[in-house]
Every structure is written in C-alpha cells, then in structure tokens.
C-alpha cells in the first residue's frame, strides 16, 4: 500500500506568549515543530505499513527549513520525504495549499491512502485535508479516532462526532484526517535517525509540480488577510485580598448566585 502523510512545520504554540507590556508576540526561542496532529497521522501511517506493508512518503509544503522536520519524520518511520517549497507559495490560504499539495502528490505518485492531521495548530482551520481529497475526487473521512480494520482493499474507521462516533467503511483510495486519540506517537528510533541523516529529501518547486502561478500563494488564495491586531484583553480584574480564609469567604459570597 502506498501511503502519503501530509505534515506541516509550525511554531511551537506552547512557547508563544504575548508580551504583556508591548502586546506583541514574545517569540524569543520559539521553536519550529512538527504539527502535533501530523505526528499522529505519521504514526498511524507507519503502523499501517507495519501491519499491511507498503511505503510511507511524508510530504510537506513549507520553507526550506522544513527539511529538518521531514528528516524527523524519516527517523520516526517514514520511508522517504518530499519538500514542496517555493517563495511563490507564500501567503497561501487553505484553497491554494490544497491546490499545491494536489499537484505535488500527483507528481510524486499514486497513493492508496493519504493521511493528514485534523488541523495545524498555527491556523487551526482543518480545511486542507478535506480540500485535498475533494480536489482528488476521492472520498475522505475527517477526525478519525481509530482505525478498526485495514486490509488490502479498504478500511473501517471510527470518526469522532460531537455526540459520540460513527463507524464507517471506505475503500481505497481515501484520505483520512486524524485526531490525537488515534495513537501515541513513537519517539525516533536509532536506525531511523541514521537513515534520516543519509536520506536525500526530494525538493519540488512550483514549476516541478506544474502549478499555475495564478493558483498558488497569495495570488491563488480566495481569502485575504486585511488586518491583524492583538486580541482584546477582557479586563475587569478584582483581586481578592486578605488571608486565604478571608479570600475564600469573599469568593464564596460572590459565587452564591451560582449555587
């Protein structure tokens, strides 16, 4: 089975804070990491390969620095990796990203299964996976929390819903987006790290994948950011004072209406 995992390099949100004085992002030492949801997609791909055989290709659209993350993907079990990178991709929204990934994947090969994280933690849109499947005209299942069964022809999966879950069956080719509950990602292996060090990562640019200049990057994006601004603080703080007992008493009084 040929499995493609789409992964994205994102800033580590845990480390990002707003500077309370300047109200700008305190970004000192913020590291780039593999999007956490994508780690779970990669893990699931590797497990599937271990159980039914095949190949796992990790694909990322991003700046040249994302190569390090792709090497990490190899050290965690991907067989090879492709970086889709071009200055012309900058400013892509989810439409242009799905367009770009579609062209890249068509160039790389026929996949039976495409796995994506549910969403990336920098944009939180959860749109690229479904958009990509729609562009390929293949079925997709979003928010998969468990693969119950996998064989040579298809899958039975659990899809997370707001009120529980649905069990759905689907044949290849198919795209799944996965949630974190699906598995616990492994740490890199020593053999994987050694392989990752040596492996050549294929780089593809806009021309390589045959993308229309008008359909990629900012130009190809139907949505445009027209304004960015810091979120409003809510304010209205009333620190209670006194000993802990006094503070607790004051608080309990004020919460009476909720009791």
């Amino acid at each position: 089975m040929k499995i493609c995992v789409c992964i994205k390099q994102v800033p580590d949100a845990k480390e990002v804070r707003l500077d309370p004085v300047t109200n700008t992002l305190a970004r000192e030492g913020v590291q780039s990491i593999m999007n956490p949801f994508d780690e779970h997609a990669l893990e699931e791909a590797v497990r599937l390969r271990e159980s039914v055989g095949g190949e796992v290709v990790a694909v990322s659209m991003g700046p040249p620095q994302a190569e390090a993350m792709l090497r990490e993907a190899i050290s965690c079990g991907a067989d090879r990796a492709v970086l889709v990178s071009d200055r012309a991709f900058a400013g892509a929204d989810t439409w242009a990203t799905a367009y770009t990934l579609e062209h890249a994947l068509r160039r790389i090969g026929d996949f039976d299964l495409i796995l994506c994280g549910k969403q990336a933690i920098d944009g939180d849109t959860a749109q690229v996976g479904p958009g990509l499947a729609t562009r390929f005209a293949i079925p997709y299942v979003a928010c998969v929390q468990k693969i119950r069964h996998a064989d040579a022809t298809g899958l039975v999966v659990e899809r997370m819903m707001d009120d529980g879950y649905d069990v759905v069956a689907v044949d290849y080719p198919v795209l799944l987006t996965v949630v974190k509950d699906i598995n616990e990602p492994r740490v890199p292996s020593l053999k994987g790290k050694m392989k990752a060090k040596k492996e050549t990562i294929l780089h593809l640019n806009a021309a390589d994948i045959g993308a229309e200049p008008a359909a990629i990057g900012l130009a190809g994006s139907p949505t445009r950011v027209v304004k960015v601004f810091p979120p409003e603080a809510r304010g209205g703080r009333a620190m209670l004072s006194g000993t802990v007992d006094e503070q607790v008493a004051q608080l309990a009084e004020r919460l009476r209406r909720y009791l």
Partner: peptide
C-alpha cells in the same frame, strides 16, 4: 516497548 521500538 517504546524503548524497543526506538532500538535502544
């Protein structure tokens, strides 16, 4: 098991 998977 995780240690084994990591080849340690």
């Amino acid at each position: 098991k995780q240690m084994a998977q990591a080849d340690l």
